[in-house]
Design a protein around this nucleic acid. Sequence first.
DNA 1: AGATAAGCGAGACGGTACGTCCCGTCTTCTG
DNA 2: CAGAAGACGGGACGTACCGTCTCGCTTATCT
Lengths: 222, 222, 222, 222
Amino acid sequence: MAMAQALIASSANPEHRSPGRPRSEHARKNILRSTLRLLRKDGFVELSIEAIAADANVGKATVYRWWPNKAALVADAFLSSAEADLRFPNTGSVRRDLSLQMKQLVRVLRGKRGRIVSALIGGGQSDASLIKAFRERFMMPRRHEAYEILRRGISRGELRASLDLDLTLDALYGPIYLRFLIRHDALTEQFACCLCSTVMDGVIVERQSTNHKSACKVTRTN
Amino acid sequence: MAMAQALIASSANPEHRSPGRPRSEHARKNILRSTLRLLRKDGFVELSIEAIAADANVGKATVYRWWPNKAALVADAFLSSAEADLRFPNTGSVRRDLSLQMKQLVRVLRGKRGRIVSALIGGGQSDASLIKAFRERFMMPRRHEAYEILRRGISRGELRASLDLDLTLDALYGPIYLRFLIRHDALTEQFACCLCSTVMDGVIVERQSTNHKSACKVTRTN
Amino acid sequence: MAMAQALIASSANPEHRSPGRPRSEHARKNILRSTLRLLRKDGFVELSIEAIAADANVGKATVYRWWPNKAALVADAFLSSAEADLRFPNTGSVRRDLSLQMKQLVRVLRGKRGRIVSALIGGGQSDASLIKAFRERFMMPRRHEAYEILRRGISRGELRASLDLDLTLDALYGPIYLRFLIRHDALTEQFACCLCSTVMDGVIVERQSTNHKSACKVTRTN
Amino acid sequence: MAMAQALIASSANPEHRSPGRPRSEHARKNILRSTLRLLRKDGFVELSIEAIAADANVGKATVYRWWPNKAALVADAFLSSAEADLRFPNTGSVRRDLSLQMKQLVRVLRGKRGRIVSALIGGGQSDASLIKAFRERFMMPRRHEAYEILRRGISRGELRASLDLDLTLDALYGPIYLRFLIRHDALTEQFACCLCSTVMDGVIVERQSTNHKSACKVTRTN
DNA sequence: AGATAAGCGAGACGGTACGTCCCGTCTTCTG
DNA sequence: CAGAAGACGGGACGTACCGTCTCGCTTATCT
């Protein structure tokens, strides 16, 4: 709700203005920026509000005024930096579309923002609002894109009509998050590709399509 | 290492005994028990050594004497509670064997030990030793069982010989962990069952085997 | 000075009026009233401008606009409540006049304004302007009355002509304030009475004027 | 009670020792010393526990462990430095004995410890435990000496036997504290002397014992 | 009538200190 | 010598007020 509040303050309804001095957009941005910077350096647990406030040249109270806790702040900071880099092409092939999206996720998780994702999911294990924020504001937007891909595949006849979309997407993305979180094996783009094929071939109507799979039948390299 | 130390102290070499009072087995057990109890209540982050020591009626120093940090203690505590409840029957069918194991994992994660698993994975996101402990001492033993199932399936001709075992197991278990950690959807035994079928049918040699799938083609109920 | 400013603004020079909205008399009164109320409840130190403004339904800045600091505000508030309740009769006897005034002081100090006097003196120990305000605007007016009493007594021949007036008044009032501030013993009207006699007659043995003293030779009752 | 605790820890019962690490006498002394130093510099209100802890190279918690608040700490610090400088000679004359004690009090109040006394009394106006500490641990010990003087005077026949000792002492010391706290007039040793005489001999005309008074019938010099 | 000027409430701002909690270490006595 | 008890220096927590600042609004005087 604090995050919603923040969003409202930064965007919507121009009509009604609450009385009093409006919040400082400058402070807000500084805080988010410092949060990301420090998060990248240390990690979620060792990140302190005290340090963020100091780094952002801001009173501690200003941080607490707008975010109820570290988790919410980190979520906001992360999500404020995660806009609009999802959009991907409609290639006409489910297999290709999904594979592209999955590979992009792998790239994100391996990049410097991956550290923040893991902090978010890790912290979310003892903070319901945090995991909710991650789910609704990071994962779901991507999922909605993926739903669309799947629906296109169904209407094109590439996928079975009886498909459970949620289950399918879990099958596609769950393994990526598993490797990302447990780190028991390499998380490569090629892994995403092979995974996609594996799940695909259990999903499409017919079963002779081995031509696609060959694309990533390379020996694994971890 | 501290865990090794602890194990040695509690078991091995009867020949040489260092002088002085031996460590208190009673204290050790109390500490582990309190750790689990408190971990079940809050998360890893909010768990404090102070609280554990108080709960276990033990001096803080006694905790620090035997475990170098919270992660090591939590790992030890978790593992001390995770013995031998895996073993499952060899039914002669990969599908059935895997489905059984997956459903058992779901049961574990939904039970009270699930709270601890999530704390472990959550805490592990900012503590390498913690995630390592989880990986090696909880996940891997189960995986080795699963490898065996898959190998049996291959030798029986149920599964393709070219199968990437690790990828297959990630495809099977990743989605379960995803739902467990992100909580975006119900984590039921039926989900495990359907998931197994989904991955299976992308994995086996032939494609007409819809007879198996019907087993869980029930409308989802979350 | 701020107080002077306030006085000017609220009263004087009708000729030239500065432009802009005039200060709100309503706000001013509310602030003073809230100050007194809160001062009565807690002490000077724990009194906060924040609380005063909230209690008075007034913006904090309005307080700071008219009073430079807490001490000035408290002094103003106190003095605004301390009008004209001193006036007392000229009975023709120093002893009786003084005794009456002393008893009246005791009544004031024991009443609800006493709480404020103690806050003022207490706060004055670390704020020169505060103790100055108390001294000049509360104590001195009463003292000037008392000077008059003493002078009358001297001219009537009741008191020695060589009397040090200040010292005498300190001897009369100091003990009252001492009990009021240190609270080591009951501060009663009877105490004021006995004290007056003691100072009048002295303490040493060689003495004739026991006729007056008998008036309050009652056993003390605290 | 925290002060009592401190006293117990620093002095009494050698038999029973509470378990655990004993409190650090070194820390305690440092804290008291720093308190006095900073109090002398700034004042009671602007004195912060934070600064004391820093100055004493001590954790803030260590301060709070032993003193419930700033007031109690300041009281302890003051009193720890106020031992055993009261003792004064028995000259055989009440007048002289009292005058000596009063002059000594004036010296104390005018000295650098006076600042702390005023902070104590000032703070005590909104903190009952503080004024109690001042009363019982600073004022009363001196009073007990003074009681003795008065009793000697009575038994020697110098003072009236019907004397109310408490009232008499208030009459003697109240004026000193009044000048000390209100600062309306000079607080000199000569003032103490004259005051003593005034109370001794009274103020009214019928009087013989002028021989004593002449000792300080000097023109006042403020 | 409109411009200009201040005061008003509300409340956010950068700060400082609060009093608490826990860290990991230490120092004591008891078993 | 291990263990319990618990004090230690340290550091971050989240809160309360400080005194200042921007807002939109109101209320006056001065063109």
